[in-house]
């Protein structure tokens, strides 16, 4: 007699086929095109390494995006540690983490000043906490909160 687990893990090949695009899109939105691919590779390798120990295969996309989020934070920190300034996240690549139509909202986000844009993307596309945003942007929590606040205020004005 065989028992079938409801959440049996599918072959990783299927997971890759179904979710790789979403992971890459998310990473492009949160750290920019230039670093998205490295992060994508790191995300998928970490996922593959951990996959057999994953107890529950019912939300594989959510699981992958969580790993991607951690990799994006690592990348932000590494960037912050670098001595010379580097390019901002590719403004053309800012997208909604949930990959749903956004009625032009993210177009407006692209138009925000750099600090506000980063903070808003981290907060809402990256779903990060203020301590995480502060760490990623090498700033204080108050300042991170302030940037998100200012960004949202500006968006509200523009979308009205």
């Amino acid at each position: 007699m065989s028992t079938v687990k409801a959440t049996a893990l599918p072959p990783f090949q299927f997971v890759f086929e179904q979710h790789a695009n979403a992971v890459l899109t998310f990473l492009r939105g949160s750290i920019g095109a230039s670093e998205a691919e490295d992060c994508f590779q790191e995300t998928m390798l970490s996922a593959l390494r951990a996959y057999p120990r994953l107890g529950d295969g019912s939300n594989l996309r959510g699981w992958l995006l969580t790993i991607a989020r951690c990799k994006a934070i690592d990348a932000h920190r590494a960037r912050a540690r670098r001595p010379s300034p580097v390019a901002d996240p590719d403004p053309g690549a800012v997208v909604d983490a949930h990959l749903e139509p956004d009625d032009g909202l993210w177009d407006q986000v692209r138009g925000l000043p750099s600090k506000q844009r980063k903070a808003v993307v981290l907060r809402f596309a990256g779903d990060k906490s203020y301590p995480e945003i502060a760490a990623a942007m090498s700033t204080t929590q108050d300042s991170a909160r302030q940037s998100v606040h200012e960004g949202l205020k500006k968006l509200r004005r523009e979308l009205r």
């Binding site: 893990l9 599918p10 072959p11 990783f12 090949q13 299927f14 890759f16 593959l48 996959y51 057999p52």
Partner: peptide, 18 residues
């Protein structure tokens, strides 16, 4: 194909890739 891969995933390992 999907069934063969699924069967091997269950019996050996889900770390299956092309």
């Amino acid at each position: 194909r999907d069934e063969v891969l699924g069967d091997v995933a269950t019996r050996l390992s889900p770390r299956i890739l092309d």
